[in-house]
């Protein structure tokens, strides 16, 4: 057997069967997936949440994760951000011919591990192999279904003046960890991506409070873009304080060096929560007990004036607008 993925592996013939059985099914084994019918048949009751995302991160292995872990966390987190309990995921691979089988296996193992941690199962999948140059090593698409518990109503439209803004930890770790691996950037760091499934953390937050109004994961575009989206959707302004936003020293230094703003750098294991101010401290206290919320902090508040604007009080005591990231200053990171 070849030690690399060949075009023929995507042909639908014997080799295709072989790659699916030997790599995907053996690792992701579960009764629904094992049926191998054209669609997965699942039971679900209640209000469903449904989402999809594609993953094209480069490099496919980076400190703290890989494209497989990212593909699970990203979709699990999108479900968690509407308060859903994630249950079932689809998994589609577009592979550039020549990808080493051992890399494929490593990524599938990582998918399995992350899915287990998040408590989701892969119920359907697809594999395509394309000519060299038609893709960059490996692209993954996942879609996910989750169930929203009764009484939970979380949406970007729900922020109200007076609400508190919470982040679950340090910002910019993922973007800088991935950038540090890029050819030509030439800086080394021990920093790891924060890539992680946040559904457990969200479930704990929901146990503490029924006044969680908005949740969003600040991935591409960073915290700044997420806050702007929420301010826009809810028709409010958000005022944050620079001093209160957790930023690792390595991330701060790398940003200074590269001319980036940590507020614009991508995260893959972070969430912004806008909650009733009365519940904020209890929520943060609970978050800090979870491994993915240890550095959780209240970073600002929702205000009425200047709807759609995000304003930051700087360390100097002055104020400035925090704008969305425009364009893609650097190559793709998720």
């Amino acid at each position: 057997m070849s030690d690399k993925v060949l075009l023929a592996h995507g042909s639908g013939g014997k080799l295709a069967h072989e790659i699916i059985h030997n790599n995907f099914l053996s690792a992701l084994d579960n009764p629904i997936l094992n049926q191998l019918d054209d669609s997965a048949i699942i039971n679900a009751e209640g209000k469903l949440a449904f989402t999809t995302d594609s993953y094209v991160v480069q490099p496919i292995f980076f400190p703290g994760g890989d494209i497989g872990k990212l593909a699970i966390c990203g979709t699990v987190n999108d479900l968690a951000m509407v308060g859903a309990k994630p249950l079932y995921l689809s998994l589609a691979f577009i592979i550039e011919e020549g990808l080493p089988i051992k890399d494929l296996r490593k990524i599938i193992a990582s998918i399995k591990e992350t899915a287990d941690e998040a408590g989701v199962i892969i119920v359907t999948g697809d594999t395509k192999v394309v000519n060299r140059g038609s893709a960059d090593r490996l692209f993954i698409n996942t879609a996910g279904i989750g169930i929203i518990p009764p009484g939970v109503n979380i949406s970007g439209h729900n922020a109200q003046p007076g609400d508190a803004v919470i982040i679950n930890g340090t910002i910019g770790d993922h973007g800088i960890a991935v950038l540090s691996q890029r050819e030509g950037l030439g800086f080394t760091t021990k920093l790891e991506s924060d890539c992680s499934p946040l559904n457990g953390l969200v479930a704990e937050m929901l146990e503490v409070s029924n006044a969680i109004r908005c949740l969003r994961d600040p991935t591409r575009g960073g915290l700044a873009s997420t806050l702007n989206e929420l301010a826009e959707q809810s028709g409010v302004s958000i005022r944050i304080e620079e001093d209160k936003i957790p930023v690792r020293e390595e991330v701060g230094s790398a940003c200074e060096m590269l001319g980036l703003d940590p507020l614009h750098v991508a995260n893959e294991g972070k969430l912004v929560a806008i909650v009733d101010a009365e519940d904020a401290e209890a929520i943060v206290a609970r978050m800090q007990k979870n491994q993915y919320g240890r550095d959780a902090a209240i970073i600002g508040e929702v205000q009425e004036e200047h709807p759609g604007r995000v304003v930051m009080k700087t360390r100097l005591g002055t104020s400035r607008i925090v704008d969305m990231l425009v364009g893609e200053p650097l190559p793709r990171i998720c």
Binding site: V311, R320, D323, P329
Partner: peptide
């Protein structure tokens, strides 16, 4: 440009923020 005046005023402008 990331160092351009117009971009700086656009992104960080001080109108109506205080």
């Amino acid at each position: 440009s990331s160092e351009g005046s117009c971009a700086a005023y656009y992104h960080y402008g001080e109108e109506d923020v205080r």
